[in-house]
Amino acid sequence: MMHFGKVAAAFTVAATLLASTAMAQTVLRSSDTHPDGYPTVEGVKYFGELVKERTDGRYEVEVYHSAQLGEEKDTIEQVRTGVIELNRISMAPFNGTVKETIVPALPYIFRSEEHMHKVMDGAVGDQIKAAFEDIGLVVLAYYDAGSRSFYNSKKPINSVEDLKGMKFRVIQSDIFVDMVAALGANATPMPYGEVYSSMETGVIDGAENNFPSYDTAKHFEVAKYYSLDEHTILPEVFVMNKAAYDQLSPEDQEIFQQAAKESVAKQRELWAAKVAESRKNVEAGGAEITNPDKQGFIDAMEPVYAKHVTDPVLKKMVEDVKAVQ
């Protein structure tokens, strides 16, 4: 009888330990508007794998891709209020709340993707990170989103003049609206998920984005003219709710930061491969790619800078970006 009592007690202890372990695990939810397999989605997944491994399973990251938790505008509020803990999102929608994000969103501010990497990995990137904390978010990483260019369903774009009067979807950002206006076209801000049907039905003539988005969202099916004007090289931002981050121990914060840093290298590698693959896909699908003279586009951006870079802090940031070699 004593033997069975000891066995029962042992099972009770084991069950209690298992329950304690299960309770100790914290599941963090992360949103992304892009489909499963997209480089940003895979970057956050990799971050989650590293965090789970290095915290011995105490933290797990669930990535909700394909806008399952809502479009970007909705998920920004969700992560700020703590409804979700993590979010990978374009930097442009933050232009109205974090003024420092205006600088990387400016057209032609970066000379190349390599230039963007150096800027975001350095002092300017740190300055933007600090500003995000004022709205209750901690920046864990900057991810690549390549260069954005115009595409449409009507005609090839070889110069600024070809854009005049056309209707383009843009990110919900005043800078993007003003950029399109400066080129003589009409901007229509709308959620990413509505772009395909809007081009298909003629509500808009086109949009602007990178090759992977143009490919994975199948926009090339309804807008076959892609103009490689590369007006912005806008990094993505991977953020965490600050209250949730502050609840981490200093040791776990270090784990999260290091995992995020390593995920950046992984995401950049995946991004470069995806751009090459997507360009092949859209060309095979009938897309026509043109290479307009960019100088006309660059010259047209003067009023955009004049309107949006009036704050002394932003003026200094623009100079700092240009000084990075």
Rank of each mutant, 00 (worst) to 15 (best):
R88C: 13
Y108H: 04
E62T: 13
V51C: 06
F94C: 00
M120P: 05
D56E: 15
Y108C: 02
V119F: 12
Y59D: 00
T81Y: 12
K45H: 07
V119W: 02
M91W: 02
R54F: 09
G43K: 04
K73S: 12
G43Y: 08
R54W: 15
G48Y: 01
V119C: 09
E60P: 00
T97N: 09
Y38A: 12
P39C: 08
P107Q: 09
A105C: 15
S66F: 01
L69M: 14
V44M: 15
T97W: 10
V51E: 05
E60Q: 13
I102V: 14
I102W: 03
Q78K: 14
M116K: 08
V103T: 06
V103H: 06
S90M: 13
I102D: 02
G122L: 08
G48F: 10
Q68W: 03
H115D: 11
G43N: 05
G125F: 14
K52M: 09
R80F: 10
V63N: 08
K118H: 07
G122R: 06
E62Y: 14
T101Q: 10
I84M: 03
A92W: 06
V83Q: 14
G82D: 12
K118Q: 14
Y64I: 06
Q78E: 07
K45P: 02
S66Y: 00
V124F: 03
T55M: 07
G125W: 06
G125E: 07
V103D: 04
P39Y: 11
P104A: 11
V103K: 00
G48H: 06
T55E: 08
P104V: 00
V51H: 01
V51T: 03
V119S: 03
N87F: 13
M91N: 05
V63I: 12
V124M: 05
V61W: 07
E60D: 12
G82I: 07
G43T: 06
D74A: 15
M116W: 06
M116H: 02
R80L: 11
E53Q: 15
V63W: 11
G43W: 12
K45Q: 13
E100S: 07
D121Y: 12
G70H: 06
S112I: 06
D126T: 05
E60F: 01
Q78H: 01
V119T: 05
L50A: 11
V79Y: 12
E77M: 04
H117I: 12
P93N: 07
